[in-house]
Design a protein around this nucleic acid. Structure first.
Lengths: 237, 237
DNA sequence: TTAGATTTGTTCGTATGTATC
DNA sequence: TGATACATACGAACAAATCTA
Protein backbone atom coordinates (compact mmCIF):
# COMPACT_ATOMS: atom_id res chain seq x y z
CA UNK A 1 0.00 0.00 0.00
CA UNK A 2 1.32 3.38 -1.02
CA UNK A 3 1.91 5.44 2.11
CA UNK A 4 1.16 9.14 2.07
CA UNK A 5 3.86 11.37 0.59
CA UNK A 6 6.03 13.12 3.14
CA UNK A 7 5.05 16.58 1.98
CA UNK A 8 1.35 15.87 2.56
CA UNK A 9 2.06 14.63 6.08
CA UNK A 10 4.04 17.77 6.79
CA UNK A 11 1.35 19.94 5.25
CA UNK A 12 -1.28 18.33 7.45
CA UNK A 13 0.89 18.60 10.56
CA UNK A 14 1.55 22.28 9.99
CA UNK A 15 -2.11 22.81 9.22
CA UNK A 16 -3.23 21.16 12.44
CA UNK A 17 -0.68 23.25 14.35
CA UNK A 18 -2.42 26.27 12.92
CA UNK A 19 -5.90 24.88 13.53
CA UNK A 20 -5.05 24.03 17.13
CA UNK A 21 -4.10 27.64 17.66
CA UNK A 22 -0.41 26.95 18.12
CA UNK A 23 -0.13 29.73 15.60
CA UNK A 24 -2.65 32.53 15.30
CA UNK A 25 -3.53 34.84 12.44
CA UNK A 26 -0.52 36.82 11.33
CA UNK A 27 1.94 34.69 13.26
CA UNK A 28 5.19 33.83 11.56
CA UNK A 29 5.79 30.16 10.97
CA UNK A 30 9.22 28.66 11.61
CA UNK A 31 11.62 29.11 8.72
CA UNK A 32 11.80 26.49 6.02
CA UNK A 33 15.18 25.45 7.38
CA UNK A 34 13.78 24.97 10.88
CA UNK A 35 10.81 22.98 9.60
CA UNK A 36 13.13 20.85 7.46
CA UNK A 37 15.24 20.07 10.51
CA UNK A 38 12.20 19.33 12.64
CA UNK A 39 10.77 16.84 10.15
CA UNK A 40 14.14 15.52 9.07
CA UNK A 41 13.54 16.24 5.41
CA UNK A 42 15.04 18.39 2.71
CA UNK A 43 14.02 22.02 2.52
CA UNK A 44 12.38 21.37 -0.88
CA UNK A 45 9.98 18.95 0.74
CA UNK A 46 8.94 21.57 3.27
CA UNK A 47 8.56 24.07 0.45
CA UNK A 48 6.14 21.77 -1.33
CA UNK A 49 4.06 21.49 1.84
CA UNK A 50 4.03 25.25 2.36
CA UNK A 51 3.17 25.85 -1.29
CA UNK A 52 0.10 23.67 -0.85
CA UNK A 53 -0.96 25.69 2.19
CA UNK A 54 -0.43 28.92 0.25
CA UNK A 55 -2.57 27.56 -2.54
CA UNK A 56 -5.31 26.77 -0.04
CA UNK A 57 -5.09 30.26 1.38
CA UNK A 58 -4.07 29.01 4.83
CA UNK A 59 -0.76 30.84 4.87
CA UNK A 60 1.00 33.44 2.77
CA UNK A 61 4.69 34.01 2.25
CA UNK A 62 6.79 37.14 1.86
CA UNK A 63 10.11 36.77 0.18
CA UNK A 64 12.88 37.45 2.64
CA UNK A 65 10.44 37.64 5.55
CA UNK A 66 8.93 34.24 6.07
CA UNK A 67 5.62 32.40 6.01
CA UNK A 68 2.67 33.78 7.93
CA UNK A 69 -0.72 32.47 8.94
CA UNK A 70 -3.43 34.05 6.83
CA UNK A 71 -6.57 35.37 8.40
CA UNK A 72 -9.14 32.75 7.58
CA UNK A 73 -12.09 34.27 5.84
CA UNK A 74 -15.19 33.96 7.94
CA UNK A 75 -18.09 32.30 6.24
CA UNK A 76 -21.16 34.46 6.21
CA UNK A 77 -24.30 32.70 5.00
CA UNK A 78 -26.85 34.61 2.98
CA UNK A 79 -29.88 32.51 3.50
CA UNK A 80 -33.41 33.44 4.33
CA UNK A 81 -32.47 33.95 7.98
CA UNK A 82 -29.70 36.04 9.29
CA UNK A 83 -27.60 34.13 11.77
CA UNK A 84 -24.55 36.21 12.39
CA UNK A 85 -23.76 35.31 15.97
CA UNK A 86 -24.67 31.64 15.75
CA UNK A 87 -22.42 31.30 12.76
CA UNK A 88 -19.45 32.92 14.41
CA UNK A 89 -19.76 30.99 17.65
CA UNK A 90 -19.84 27.78 15.63
CA UNK A 91 -16.26 28.46 14.61
CA UNK A 92 -15.19 29.68 17.99
CA UNK A 93 -15.24 33.39 17.26
CA UNK A 94 -16.83 35.99 19.45
CA UNK A 95 -19.14 38.16 17.39
CA UNK A 96 -19.95 41.65 18.46
CA UNK A 97 -21.49 44.69 16.94
CA UNK A 98 -20.76 48.31 17.66
CA UNK A 99 -23.37 50.89 16.76
CA UNK A 100 -21.58 54.11 15.93
CA UNK A 101 -24.54 56.27 15.02
CA UNK A 102 -28.29 56.19 15.12
CA UNK A 103 -30.93 58.70 14.21
CA UNK A 104 -34.51 59.10 13.10
CA UNK A 105 -35.03 61.22 10.03
CA UNK A 106 -37.07 61.57 6.86
CA UNK A 107 -36.43 58.73 4.43
CA UNK A 108 -34.45 59.59 1.34
CA UNK A 109 -35.51 58.46 -2.11
CA UNK A 110 -33.71 55.10 -2.05
CA UNK A 111 -35.04 54.27 1.37
CA UNK A 112 -38.57 55.25 0.42
CA UNK A 113 -38.28 53.10 -2.66
CA UNK A 114 -36.95 50.04 -0.84
CA UNK A 115 -39.24 50.28 2.18
CA UNK A 116 -42.29 51.41 0.20
CA UNK A 117 -42.70 54.67 2.04
CA UNK A 118 -44.14 57.94 0.79
CA UNK A 119 -42.40 61.28 0.92
CA UNK A 120 -42.08 62.66 4.40
CA UNK A 121 -42.26 59.35 6.24
CA UNK A 122 -39.47 58.75 8.69
CA UNK A 123 -36.92 56.02 9.14
CA UNK A 124 -34.68 54.87 11.96
CA UNK A 125 -31.12 54.58 10.71
CA UNK A 126 -28.29 52.80 12.50
CA UNK A 127 -24.67 52.63 11.45
CA UNK A 128 -21.99 50.45 12.92
CA UNK A 129 -19.30 47.87 12.66
CA UNK A 130 -19.43 44.09 13.05
CA UNK A 131 -16.51 42.34 14.70
CA UNK A 132 -15.32 38.78 15.08
CA UNK A 133 -12.79 38.49 17.87
CA UNK A 134 -12.16 42.24 17.73
CA UNK A 135 -11.33 42.11 14.05
CA UNK A 136 -13.70 44.31 12.05
CA UNK A 137 -15.56 42.25 9.50
CA UNK A 138 -18.03 44.67 8.06
CA UNK A 139 -19.53 48.11 8.35
CA UNK A 140 -23.24 48.46 7.94
CA UNK A 141 -26.03 50.96 7.64
CA UNK A 142 -29.64 49.90 8.10
CA UNK A 143 -32.87 51.79 7.74
CA UNK A 144 -36.15 50.74 9.35
CA UNK A 145 -39.55 52.36 8.84
CA UNK A 146 -40.19 54.50 11.90
CA UNK A 147 -43.97 54.63 11.64
CA UNK A 148 -44.79 51.03 12.58
CA UNK A 149 -41.94 50.74 15.09
CA UNK A 150 -41.66 54.05 16.97
CA UNK A 151 -39.61 52.57 19.83
CA UNK A 152 -37.24 50.51 17.71
CA UNK A 153 -34.17 52.66 18.23
CA UNK A 154 -34.54 52.51 21.99
CA UNK A 155 -34.80 48.72 21.87
CA UNK A 156 -31.77 48.46 19.61
CA UNK A 157 -29.77 50.63 21.96
CA UNK A 158 -30.90 48.51 24.90
CA UNK A 159 -30.38 45.06 23.44
CA UNK A 160 -27.78 45.68 20.74
CA UNK A 161 -29.65 43.20 18.63
CA UNK A 162 -31.86 44.08 15.70
CA UNK A 163 -33.68 40.78 15.87
CA UNK A 164 -34.57 41.20 19.56
CA UNK A 165 -35.49 44.82 19.07
CA UNK A 166 -37.84 43.95 16.24
CA UNK A 167 -39.31 41.17 18.35
CA UNK A 168 -40.08 43.73 21.03
CA UNK A 169 -41.85 45.79 18.37
CA UNK A 170 -44.07 42.89 17.40
CA UNK A 171 -42.07 41.53 14.48
CA UNK A 172 -41.66 37.89 15.35
CA UNK A 173 -40.08 36.82 12.13
CA UNK A 174 -38.44 38.41 9.18
CA UNK A 175 -36.57 37.03 6.21
CA UNK A 176 -34.25 38.30 3.56
CA UNK A 177 -36.17 39.15 0.42
CA UNK A 178 -33.33 40.21 -1.84
CA UNK A 179 -29.61 40.79 -1.77
CA UNK A 180 -27.47 42.53 -4.34
CA UNK A 181 -23.74 42.04 -4.26
CA UNK A 182 -20.87 43.69 -5.96
CA UNK A 183 -17.16 44.06 -5.49
CA UNK A 184 -15.76 47.55 -4.99
CA UNK A 185 -12.70 49.33 -3.73
CA UNK A 186 -12.82 50.54 -0.16
CA UNK A 187 -13.42 54.27 0.20
CA UNK A 188 -11.15 55.86 2.77
CA UNK A 189 -13.93 56.05 5.34
CA UNK A 190 -14.81 52.38 4.98
CA UNK A 191 -11.13 51.41 4.89
CA UNK A 192 -10.55 53.30 8.12
CA UNK A 193 -13.42 51.58 9.90
CA UNK A 194 -12.47 48.12 8.65
CA UNK A 195 -8.77 48.73 9.28
CA UNK A 196 -7.85 47.69 5.78
CA UNK A 197 -5.75 49.52 3.18
CA UNK A 198 -7.50 52.11 1.10
CA UNK A 199 -8.67 50.66 -2.20
CA UNK A 200 -8.63 47.15 -0.77
CA UNK A 201 -11.48 45.09 -2.21
CA UNK A 202 -14.75 45.10 -0.33
CA UNK A 203 -17.91 43.17 -0.93
CA UNK A 204 -20.87 45.51 -0.93
CA UNK A 205 -24.26 44.08 -0.18
CA UNK A 206 -27.63 45.79 -0.47
CA UNK A 207 -30.39 43.79 1.13
CA UNK A 208 -34.05 44.07 1.96
CA UNK A 209 -35.71 42.15 4.78
CA UNK A 210 -39.44 41.61 4.98
CA UNK A 211 -41.89 40.33 7.57
CA UNK A 212 -43.82 37.12 7.08
CA UNK A 213 -46.68 39.12 5.58
CA UNK A 214 -44.41 40.82 3.09
CA UNK A 215 -43.93 44.20 4.72
CA UNK A 216 -40.38 45.55 4.26
CA UNK A 217 -38.75 46.10 7.65
CA UNK A 218 -35.10 46.72 6.88
CA UNK A 219 -33.11 48.23 4.06
CA UNK A 220 -29.48 47.60 4.70
CA UNK A 221 -26.12 48.19 3.10
CA UNK A 222 -23.11 46.25 4.29
CA UNK A 223 -19.48 46.56 3.28
CA UNK A 224 -17.52 43.39 4.02
CA UNK A 225 -13.73 43.28 4.17
CA UNK A 226 -12.99 41.14 1.13
CA UNK A 227 -10.13 39.19 2.64
CA UNK A 228 -11.90 38.43 5.89
CA UNK A 229 -15.27 37.23 4.73
CA UNK A 230 -16.74 34.65 2.42
CA UNK A 231 -20.42 34.93 1.67
CA UNK A 232 -22.13 31.66 1.05
CA UNK A 233 -25.43 31.10 -0.66
CA UNK A 234 -26.86 27.68 0.01
CA UNK A 235 -29.72 26.09 -1.78
CA UNK A 236 -32.22 25.30 0.94
CA UNK A 237 -32.58 25.68 4.72
CA UNK B 1 -46.82 74.31 -3.05
CA UNK B 2 -43.11 73.60 -3.05
CA UNK B 3 -41.90 73.18 -6.59
CA UNK B 4 -39.18 70.69 -7.36
CA UNK B 5 -35.63 71.97 -6.97
CA UNK B 6 -33.92 72.89 -10.22
CA UNK B 7 -31.11 70.42 -9.70
CA UNK B 8 -33.53 67.48 -9.45
CA UNK B 9 -35.25 68.49 -12.65
CA UNK B 10 -31.92 68.73 -14.41
CA UNK B 11 -30.81 65.40 -12.96
CA UNK B 12 -33.97 63.74 -14.28
CA UNK B 13 -33.65 65.37 -17.68
CA UNK B 14 -30.06 64.26 -18.12
CA UNK B 15 -31.00 60.82 -16.85
CA UNK B 16 -33.81 60.45 -19.35
CA UNK B 17 -31.47 61.63 -22.11
CA UNK B 18 -29.25 58.73 -21.14
CA UNK B 19 -32.15 56.31 -20.82
CA UNK B 20 -33.51 57.29 -24.22
CA UNK B 21 -30.15 56.38 -25.69
CA UNK B 22 -29.26 59.91 -26.64
CA UNK B 23 -26.06 58.96 -24.90
CA UNK B 24 -24.68 55.45 -24.80
CA UNK B 25 -22.30 53.74 -22.39
CA UNK B 26 -18.97 55.50 -22.34
CA UNK B 27 -20.27 58.57 -24.16
CA UNK B 28 -19.12 61.93 -22.93
CA UNK B 29 -21.81 64.23 -21.63
CA UNK B 30 -21.74 67.94 -22.48
CA UNK B 31 -19.46 69.95 -20.22
CA UNK B 32 -20.79 71.50 -17.05
CA UNK B 33 -20.58 74.91 -18.70
CA UNK B 34 -22.63 73.72 -21.70
CA UNK B 35 -25.27 72.13 -19.49
CA UNK B 36 -25.43 75.25 -17.35
CA UNK B 37 -26.01 77.34 -20.46
CA UNK B 38 -28.61 74.91 -21.80
CA UNK B 39 -30.64 74.93 -18.58
CA UNK B 40 -29.93 78.58 -17.83
CA UNK B 41 -28.51 77.89 -14.38
CA UNK B 42 -25.28 78.29 -12.51
CA UNK B 43 -22.58 75.72 -12.92
CA UNK B 44 -22.98 74.65 -9.29
CA UNK B 45 -26.54 73.67 -9.91
CA UNK B 46 -25.50 71.43 -12.78
CA UNK B 47 -22.75 70.01 -10.60
CA UNK B 48 -25.27 69.06 -7.95
CA UNK B 49 -27.34 67.21 -10.56
CA UNK B 50 -24.32 65.38 -11.91
CA UNK B 51 -23.16 64.51 -8.40
CA UNK B 52 -26.50 62.82 -7.81
CA UNK B 53 -26.10 60.79 -11.00
CA UNK B 54 -22.58 59.81 -9.96
CA UNK B 55 -23.93 58.74 -6.60
CA UNK B 56 -26.47 56.55 -8.33
CA UNK B 57 -23.79 55.05 -10.53
CA UNK B 58 -25.36 56.37 -13.71
CA UNK B 59 -22.34 58.41 -14.78
CA UNK B 60 -18.76 58.86 -13.69
CA UNK B 61 -16.50 61.88 -14.01
CA UNK B 62 -12.84 62.32 -14.76
CA UNK B 63 -11.28 65.57 -13.71
CA UNK B 64 -10.06 67.48 -16.69
CA UNK B 65 -11.81 65.13 -19.06
CA UNK B 66 -15.54 65.28 -18.50
CA UNK B 67 -18.54 63.27 -17.38
CA UNK B 68 -19.23 59.92 -19.00
CA UNK B 69 -22.11 57.49 -19.06
CA UNK B 70 -21.28 54.52 -16.85
CA UNK B 71 -21.70 50.98 -18.02
CA UNK B 72 -24.64 49.71 -16.02
CA UNK B 73 -23.62 46.72 -13.95
CA UNK B 74 -25.29 43.64 -15.23
CA UNK B 75 -27.47 41.92 -12.72
CA UNK B 76 -26.54 38.31 -12.33
CA UNK B 77 -29.02 36.29 -10.31
CA UNK B 78 -27.72 33.49 -8.12
CA UNK B 79 -30.78 31.37 -7.82
CA UNK B 80 -31.27 27.69 -8.11
CA UNK B 81 -31.11 27.86 -11.89
CA UNK B 82 -28.49 29.48 -13.96
CA UNK B 83 -30.01 31.80 -16.49
CA UNK B 84 -27.15 33.71 -17.95
CA UNK B 85 -28.34 34.21 -21.51
CA UNK B 86 -32.00 34.77 -20.67
CA UNK B 87 -30.99 37.41 -18.21
CA UNK B 88 -28.77 39.25 -20.62
CA UNK B 89 -31.22 39.19 -23.49
CA UNK B 90 -33.86 40.61 -21.17
CA UNK B 91 -31.81 43.79 -20.95
CA UNK B 92 -30.89 43.82 -24.60
CA UNK B 93 -27.38 42.49 -24.27
CA UNK B 94 -25.90 39.75 -26.40
CA UNK B 95 -24.32 37.16 -24.16
CA UNK B 96 -21.55 34.95 -25.42
CA UNK B 97 -18.99 32.63 -23.96
CA UNK B 98 -15.53 31.89 -25.21
CA UNK B 99 -13.87 28.67 -24.13
CA UNK B 100 -10.14 29.24 -24.03
CA UNK B 101 -8.98 25.85 -22.79
CA UNK B 102 -10.34 22.41 -22.13
CA UNK B 103 -8.79 19.19 -20.99
CA UNK B 104 -9.49 15.91 -19.26
CA UNK B 105 -7.19 15.05 -16.38
CA UNK B 106 -7.06 13.51 -12.93
CA UNK B 107 -9.03 15.49 -10.38
CA UNK B 108 -7.05 17.40 -7.79
CA UNK B 109 -7.99 17.30 -4.13
CA UNK B 110 -10.39 20.23 -4.19
CA UNK B 111 -12.18 18.87 -7.20
CA UNK B 112 -12.38 15.40 -5.68
CA UNK B 113 -13.73 16.89 -2.52
CA UNK B 114 -16.38 19.01 -4.21
CA UNK B 115 -17.45 16.42 -6.75
CA UNK B 116 -17.17 13.46 -4.36
CA UNK B 117 -14.61 11.60 -6.43
CA UNK B 118 -11.90 9.23 -5.28
CA UNK B 119 -8.24 9.56 -6.08
CA UNK B 120 -7.42 8.79 -9.68
CA UNK B 121 -10.83 9.66 -11.11
CA UNK B 122 -10.78 12.09 -13.97
CA UNK B 123 -12.49 15.42 -14.59
CA UNK B 124 -13.25 17.50 -17.66
CA UNK B 125 -12.08 21.04 -17.11
CA UNK B 126 -13.04 24.05 -19.21
CA UNK B 127 -11.80 27.58 -18.88
CA UNK B 128 -13.14 30.61 -20.61
CA UNK B 129 -14.56 34.11 -20.60
CA UNK B 130 -18.17 35.31 -20.52
CA UNK B 131 -19.09 38.40 -22.50
CA UNK B 132 -22.03 40.75 -22.70
CA UNK B 133 -21.95 42.78 -25.88
CA UNK B 134 -18.26 42.00 -26.31
CA UNK B 135 -17.45 43.33 -22.86
CA UNK B 136 -15.84 40.64 -20.71
CA UNK B 137 -17.92 40.06 -17.60
CA UNK B 138 -16.26 37.09 -16.00
CA UNK B 139 -13.65 34.41 -16.39
CA UNK B 140 -14.51 30.93 -15.27
CA UNK B 141 -13.10 27.47 -14.74
CA UNK B 142 -15.42 24.52 -14.37
CA UNK B 143 -14.73 20.90 -13.58
CA UNK B 144 -17.13 18.05 -14.40
CA UNK B 145 -16.74 14.40 -13.42
CA UNK B 146 -15.51 12.59 -16.51
CA UNK B 147 -16.67 9.10 -15.53
CA UNK B 148 -20.44 9.55 -15.88
CA UNK B 149 -20.15 11.93 -18.85
CA UNK B 150 -17.33 10.70 -21.10
CA UNK B 151 -18.48 12.72 -24.12
CA UNK B 152 -19.19 15.95 -22.29
CA UNK B 153 -16.22 17.89 -23.61
CA UNK B 154 -17.15 17.09 -27.20
CA UNK B 155 -20.70 18.27 -26.62
CA UNK B 156 -19.52 21.45 -24.97
CA UNK B 157 -17.23 22.16 -27.90
CA UNK B 158 -20.07 21.51 -30.32
CA UNK B 159 -22.82 23.48 -28.61
CA UNK B 160 -20.88 26.01 -26.55
CA UNK B 161 -23.46 25.51 -23.84
CA UNK B 162 -22.91 23.55 -20.66
CA UNK B 163 -26.60 23.07 -20.13
CA UNK B 164 -27.17 21.61 -23.59
CA UNK B 165 -24.06 19.47 -23.33
CA UNK B 166 -25.19 18.05 -20.01
CA UNK B 167 -28.63 17.43 -21.50
CA UNK B 168 -26.99 15.40 -24.25
CA UNK B 169 -25.26 13.38 -21.53
CA UNK B 170 -28.53 12.57 -19.83
CA UNK B 171 -28.59 15.32 -17.23
CA UNK B 172 -31.95 16.96 -17.76
CA UNK B 173 -31.82 19.25 -14.80
CA UNK B 174 -29.26 20.58 -12.41
CA UNK B 175 -29.37 23.22 -9.73
CA UNK B 176 -26.94 25.25 -7.74
CA UNK B 177 -26.26 23.61 -4.40
CA UNK B 178 -23.89 26.13 -2.89
CA UNK B 179 -22.08 29.31 -3.75
CA UNK B 180 -19.27 30.96 -1.86
CA UNK B 181 -18.43 34.56 -2.63
CA UNK B 182 -15.59 36.82 -1.74
CA UNK B 183 -14.06 40.02 -2.94
CA UNK B 184 -10.46 39.99 -4.14
CA UNK B 185 -8.02 41.98 -6.16
CA UNK B 186 -7.61 40.93 -9.76
CA UNK B 187 -4.44 38.98 -10.43
CA UNK B 188 -2.67 40.15 -13.55
CA UNK B 189 -3.89 37.14 -15.51
CA UNK B 190 -7.52 37.71 -14.57
CA UNK B 191 -7.15 41.46 -15.08
CA UNK B 192 -5.81 40.84 -18.56
CA UNK B 193 -8.67 38.57 -19.51
CA UNK B 194 -11.33 40.88 -18.07
CA UNK B 195 -9.64 43.97 -19.50
CA UNK B 196 -9.66 45.73 -16.14
CA UNK B 197 -6.80 47.37 -14.25
CA UNK B 198 -4.59 45.12 -12.22
CA UNK B 199 -5.74 45.02 -8.59
CA UNK B 200 -9.23 46.12 -9.56
CA UNK B 201 -11.82 44.45 -7.35
CA UNK B 202 -13.25 41.17 -8.54
CA UNK B 203 -15.99 39.04 -7.12
CA UNK B 204 -14.86 35.46 -6.83
CA UNK B 205 -17.50 32.76 -6.73
CA UNK B 206 -17.03 29.08 -5.98
CA UNK B 207 -20.11 27.07 -6.77
CA UNK B 208 -21.27 23.50 -6.89
CA UNK B 209 -24.10 22.30 -9.09
CA UNK B 210 -25.93 19.06 -8.50
CA UNK B 211 -28.42 16.92 -10.40
CA UNK B 212 -31.98 16.42 -9.21
CA UNK B 213 -30.86 13.27 -7.39
CA UNK B 214 -28.06 15.05 -5.60
CA UNK B 215 -25.07 14.02 -7.67
CA UNK B 216 -22.53 16.82 -8.06
CA UNK B 217 -22.05 17.65 -11.74
CA UNK B 218 -20.05 20.86 -11.77
CA UNK B 219 -17.49 22.52 -9.55
CA UNK B 220 -16.89 25.99 -10.84
CA UNK B 221 -14.92 29.07 -9.99
CA UNK B 222 -15.87 32.40 -11.53
CA UNK B 223 -14.16 35.75 -11.29
CA UNK B 224 -16.56 38.62 -12.03
CA UNK B 225 -15.41 42.13 -12.91
CA UNK B 226 -16.59 44.03 -9.84
CA UNK B 227 -17.71 47.15 -11.64
CA UNK B 228 -19.58 45.33 -14.38
CA UNK B 229 -21.65 42.87 -12.43
CA UNK B 230 -24.09 42.83 -9.57
CA UNK B 231 -24.94 39.46 -8.12
CA UNK B 232 -28.42 39.20 -6.74
CA UNK B 233 -29.78 36.63 -4.38
CA UNK B 234 -33.54 36.59 -4.36
CA UNK B 235 -35.73 34.79 -1.94
CA UNK B 236 -37.92 32.73 -4.23
CA UNK B 237 -37.89 31.07 -7.64
C1' DT C 1 8.14 67.21 -25.78
C1' DT C 2 6.08 71.38 -24.54
C1' DA C 3 2.77 75.02 -23.77
C1' DG C 4 -1.64 76.58 -23.59
C1' DA C 5 -6.54 75.74 -23.55
C1' DT C 6 -10.18 73.01 -21.65
C1' DT C 7 -12.62 70.69 -18.03
C1' DT C 8 -13.67 69.07 -13.54
C1' DG C 9 -12.73 69.69 -8.36
C1' DT C 10 -12.50 72.72 -4.33
C1' DT C 11 -13.23 76.60 -1.54
C1' DC C 12 -14.48 80.86 -0.57
C1' DG C 13 -18.70 84.33 -0.35
C1' DT C 14 -23.62 86.03 -0.94
C1' DA C 15 -28.56 85.71 -0.92
C1' DT C 16 -33.17 83.65 -0.46
C1' DG C 17 -36.88 80.56 0.81
C1' DT C 18 -38.45 76.80 3.93
C1' DA C 19 -38.79 73.98 7.94
C1' DT C 20 -38.18 73.58 12.88
C1' DC C 21 -38.14 74.79 17.58
C1' DT D 1 -43.68 85.49 16.53
C1' DG D 2 -38.63 85.29 16.41
C1' DA D 3 -34.46 82.72 16.10
C1' DT D 4 -32.09 79.19 14.05
C1' DA D 5 -30.83 75.71 10.94
C1' DC D 6 -30.94 73.82 6.44
C1' DA D 7 -31.54 73.44 1.39
C1' DT D 8 -31.25 75.84 -2.78
C1' DA D 9 -29.06 78.85 -6.09
C1' DC D 10 -25.70 82.10 -7.98
C1' DG D 11 -20.85 84.23 -8.36
C1' DA D 12 -15.79 84.24 -8.40
C1' DA D 13 -11.34 82.42 -8.15
C1' DC D 14 -8.00 78.96 -8.25
C1' DA D 15 -6.12 74.03 -8.29
C1' DA D 16 -5.50 69.77 -10.65
C1' DA D 17 -6.04 66.69 -14.36
C1' DT D 18 -6.58 66.21 -19.19
C1' DC D 19 -6.48 67.19 -23.96
C1' DT D 20 -4.62 69.30 -28.07
C1' DA D 21 -2.04 71.95 -31.27
Amino acid sequence: MAREPLWKTIRDTVFSDISNAHYKSGDKLPTEAQLAARFGVNRHTVRQSLAALVDDGVIFTRRGAGAFVATTPIDYPIGKRVRFHQNLSAIGKAGSREITASETRSANEKERNALKLVEGEKVHVIEGISYADDVPLAVFRSAFPAGPYPDLLRHIQATGSTTHALNSCGVNDYTRASTRLTSKRATNLVALKLKIPENAPVLKSISINITSDGQPVEYGATWFAGDRVTLSVDAET
